[in-house]
Every structure is written in C-alpha cells, then in structure tokens.
Design a protein around this nucleic acid. Structure first.
Lengths: 336, 336
DNA sequence: CTGAAAGCGCTTACAG
DNA sequence: CTGAAAGCGCTTACAG
C-alpha cells in the first residue's frame, strides 16, 4: 500500500506538507501543492482512515444496533441513518441484536472497541436498564431509536399514544365495543405505549372492562395461541387492532383461516402495517410510521451531540399518519 | 480512556504481557495472568480495535454496499451478511448506493480507506465495469452479490433463468399465449437474466413474437407508463409476470385500477414477491428467493477468500422456490 | 516465563 | 511557507 512517505518522497516534500495538502489544514504554495497532488495521483495513494482516526481520536463512524433488521420499519430506519451519515462523510457500522439482549451487549462492546464516535440503539425486547448504565459514565454519545425510555439520552421515535386513541375512537364511533388489541411483547416500549393508550382510550370511550380484549405475550407462539383463542370463542371481537407488522400478519392468518370477512364480520387496523398495504383486499387501515425520517433524525441528533456534548438531551416524537381504508369500513381512498 | 499502559502498571507487568494475556498469544504464568485480569477488570479496560488493526493490518471488518436497502430482498441479504459476520467476530460496515453509480463509487472509496478486510457489492443499475477494475489490481477481496457478472470474482446470487422458464411453461400449459413480462431496467443483471429466460422459454413454447409482451425501461416513470399502456389496449395480455417486488406492485396497482380480476381476467406471478404474500387476495404466485442465505453465503465466500486469497473464484447460484397460488389458477396451498 | 523497543500510518504542535 | 519529530495504542520479533 502506498503511504504518505512514498508520496512525500516523490513530490520532494515532507509528510507534513502532504498531510496539509490532503486536509487543507494550512497554506501550501501552489506549485508545491501541484507536485503533491501529482504524486498522489501517480502513486494512487489512498488515505488510511485507521491511522488518521487513531491520531485524531475520532473515527468519523457511528454504530447502529437494531433489534430486528427484518422488520420493514427497521429496514427503513437503517436507510435513514445510512443516508444521513453518508451525506456527512460518516460510515455506518451495523449490528442486529435479533431481540437478544446478549447479542445486543456484544454488539455494543464490539462497536465501542471500534471507537465509533457515537451509537444509535433500538433496544432488544428483553434488554435491561444496565445496558444503558454503561453510557452514563462514558463519553461515547448514545441515541435511543424507536424504543424509548425514561433515561437521559437523546431519543427519537414515533408518537404511539395518539394514533391508537384515534383508532379506538374511530372504531367506537362506528359502534364497536368489543375490540381486540394484539400487543404481543409489552417489554418493547412501543408496544407497551400502544397498549396503555388502548386501555386509556377504551376507558374514555366508556367501554366496559369485559369488552377490552388483549393479547399480550413475550413469545411468538404464545401470542399466536392467544390470537387463535380470541378469534374462536362464541363471543368474537367485532374489531381488531394489531400493534405491529408481525402481529398483524399473525392476526390476518387467523382471520382468513376462520373465514371472517373484513369489515363485515370483523374490522381490522394495524400499527405500522405492510409495505404495499394498498394492494391488500380489502385495503387495510394502517398507521404509517415515518420510519426513514426516524432513522435520519437519529443520525442528526447523534452528529449534533458528537459536535457538542454539553447540550441537553432531546426527545423527538415524530407523528405517524393514519390511513383509513376499507378494512375498518372506510371506503378505499378516504385516508386521513 | 484506559490503555494497556495503565493496566500494565497496575498489574506490575509489561504491556507485552498484557497484550499476550488479552490475545492468548503466549504462555503467561497463572498468577501473573490473574493479576493482569484483575487490573483489566478494575480499570474497565477495553481493547482499542483501531490500534490493534493498524498494527496487524487487519480490521476484522467487512464492507457491504447494497443498491437498494429498501427492497425486502436486500434487507434480508443484509441480515444474512450481518449475522454471519457477527458470528465470526467481524463487524459490518454498511453503505447504500441507492442505484446511483457515483454513490457506489464513493462508498467503495470510503470503505477501502477504512481498510475493510473485504467487500461485498450488489452493484447499482448503471454501474460500469470500471467500478470493478479497481479490484483486479488490488488485494482487497471482493464478492459480488445478487447482481452477477462475467468478471473473475467470487459471486453469489440466485438462479434466475430456471424459475422464469418454469413459470412460462406453467402459464402456457394453462393455455396462455399472450404473456406480459415486466422487467424494468435490464441493466440490472438479475432483470436482464429474467428477461432473456423469458424470451427463450417463449420461443421454446412456440409462442409467436406478437404475443411476447415486455415492459423494459430504465426509469420508474417509463416503466409505469409502459405497464399502463400494456394493460389498456384492446388486446390485453392474459398473464403477467413481474420481475421484482417494485415492478409487481406497479403492475398490481394498474390491474386493480382497471378492475381486472385475477386469475379470471388476468393471471399474475411475480419474481421475489411480497413479504406476506400469503395474505393477499387472491394469493399470489411467487418466486421466493433465499435472500438471507444469499447474504450469508456472500459473507462466507468473503471470509474464506480473506483467509486464503489463492483459491479460484467461485460462483454460487442458489435456487429459488416457486410457490404456485391462486393468482395463476392454482388453488391456494398447492405450492410447488 | 517476561520485558524493552520498534513500528503500523497518520496529525499536529514546535521551530525556523 | 515548510520540515523534523513526537505520539495515538497496540503487536511482535528479539533478547534474556
């Protein structure tokens, strides 16, 4: 590999000058600069980011740990982070915890060893508070993404309560009382918030406790069994709200299996639905998250904090939009 | 930050010994080792991967550049690469070219500057051969993913010809002659291969030229217009094959808009369909790619080559599976 | 069994 | 306007 020494020799200057030409950090005579540039060209020299990072103690890279890279919403967030980072000359190191706190912890270590300038974390479902404790006593900035907490870090996610409340009102206004909320693993902050909002909204709407149906379970199998049970009794719910794409898919499979028609037999809405939700028959009412924007904002918060560690942490909640469609009785195309 | 010097002082040994304890690179007396371990614990020392990488000239990191992180298939490939890399203690640097050759070129440079041990590349649509020329004269290994070429590199993708031919035979056997292939941008190797296979299969099946309909176009808008035109004439195709998720979505929208029923009015099949294709009504015949496996294999080929650069490049084609469903007349659940 | 020292490829005061 | 030299935090022959 070509190093600065070779370039410097060829150009007849010191490596200091090469470095300064490269980084524009001090004035260099025009003819000297030309010689250096020519030497760089001829040797096809490429700067060594490692050595540079070590000297500057700054890597111009950030780490991102997602809990499930397979979910479309996370895939979009990853894109948002990557694009924003790339536009600032920052490289992205990506890790996937697959909802496993141990893998999450290992990923955090690996990224810190790599001296990322900062870290964006969408926490795994079972990740305890100690995972974050590490960052309190340390100067690598941390931004929490999607799954927020009470801890004093920069955070960005979506508004979960509002859309659920609006959805419940919408359903109740149409005469629904017996509504099933599928929330799955409420250790996940987003799902917990959606569940809480559901209970509150149902109370506000005056729906009796007995009609507030929920499926809460940490394991996918349990959740699936819960949905099956909820959809097979004699007193079926008249409406279903699924709190994530995976949960919506599970619910729809059971609805299909039981031969229930939407919305005639059962109304259906999902938080963060499907990539091409408009192609479903009937079209599904969906709470659409600005996932790309969540990722982009996370990257922005992080680079801001890297630039200035003294500012107060800020918590950003982006607003999803509800797209009302036929599955809850609204005609297709009557979106909010 | 704690460095080895601090640990060595506290343990009363040299930094050599600390290094050897950390890496297990030579025997260290048990009590000495204990002292070192204790000092590491007390100082909460963390190895600096940068300094280590610089000394060893090996970063234990690989780069991945995808052409469209938003497509579900790529999201899966990313997961496959990440998981395989992580299991070997290798960190993933991710970049997204967004089908832009310039961004791709910048990403390649950024990753090489970071001295990744190797690179996995799913090329952007318009990426010329010069993008690869760089790697021929250089010792950073390159693996081509998904979008393959004739160049002498390790490559992994899926078998594109077989499934398309099978699909055409299937349709022709059902009496279809006038079949529309939506292939979009055939600068993309996968789409080009699918288009070629279509033409061949139609020839083999004895379908007259006039009934072989295609939509080929570099720009999404053109493609969309092409689909609209193909579906609005007086002589409509009786079957449609879409060559990617995005193209399938565009086609389905036009089919819906025209009020065509599947499969009665028009049969429909897609290469690499939708995440939850089983939830569509009617259920869609889909060529399902082993995308995660493609990513995992790419990472494996790369680490093998990093370990031994002398072996001959290998080209791996993984086999997709065709899931026949109602949209081509097969009853749901009668998958291949 | 362990230590002293060179060196990976840069940046950046310091000096002229 | 430019150069000589220290040092970022490690690994690894070399020596004992």
């Amino acid at each position: 590999m070509t190093t600065m020494v070779k370039v410097a020799k060829l150009a007849g200057v010191s490596i200091s000058t090469v470095s300064h030409v490269l980084n524009g950090t001090r004035h260099v005579n025009d003819d000297t600069r030309q010689r250096v540039l020519k030497a760089i060209e001829e040797t096809s020299y490429r700067q060594d980011a490692l050595a540079r990072a070590m000297r500057r103690s700054r890597t111009d890279s950030i780490g991102l740990i997602v809990s499930d890279g397979g979910e479309p919403a996370f895939a979009e967030m990853i894109r948002g982070v990557e694009q924003t980072a790339a536009s600032q000359g920052i490289t992205l190191l990506l890790a996937n915890s697959a909802e496993d706190p141990q893998r999450e912890a290992r990923a955090v270590q690996a990224l810190l060893e790599r001296r990322v300038d900062g870290l964006i974390l969408a926490r795994a479902a079972g990740s305890g508070p100690n995972a974050l404790a590490e960052f309190a006593n340390q100067d690598t900035p941390l931004v929490l993404m999607d799954r927020l907490s009470e801890d004093p870090f920069d955070q960005v996610g979506v508004e979960n309560r509002g859309p659920i409340m609006e959805l419940v009102e919408h359903l109740v206004a149409q005469g629904h009382q017996r509504i099933l909320l599928i929330a799955g693993d409420t250790r996940v902050a987003t799902l917990r918030e959606r569940h809480e909002a559901f209970q509150e909204a149902m109370t506000t709407a005056g729906v009796p406790e007995a009609d507030r149906l929920t499926v809460l379970a940490a394991e996918p199998e349990e959740t699936d069994a819960g949905i099956a049970a909820a959809l097979s009794g004699t007193k079926l719910p008249t409406a279903v709200i699924a709190c994530s794409t995976v949960l919506a898919a599970a619910a729809l499979r059971h609805i299909q299996k039981r031969g229930l028609r939407m919305p005639e037999d059962i109304a259906f809405a999902a938080f963060d639905g499907f990539a091409y939700a408009d192609l479903f028959e009937p079209q599904l009412t969906t709470v659409r998250q600005p996932a790309f924007q969540v990722g982009a904002t996370a990257a922005e918060l992080l680079t801001k904090r890297i630039a200035d560690k003294s500012v107060e942490p800020s918590v950003v909640r982006l607003a999803p939009t509800i797209e009302y469609r036929a599955s809850t009785g609204a005609g297709p195309g009557s979106g909010s």
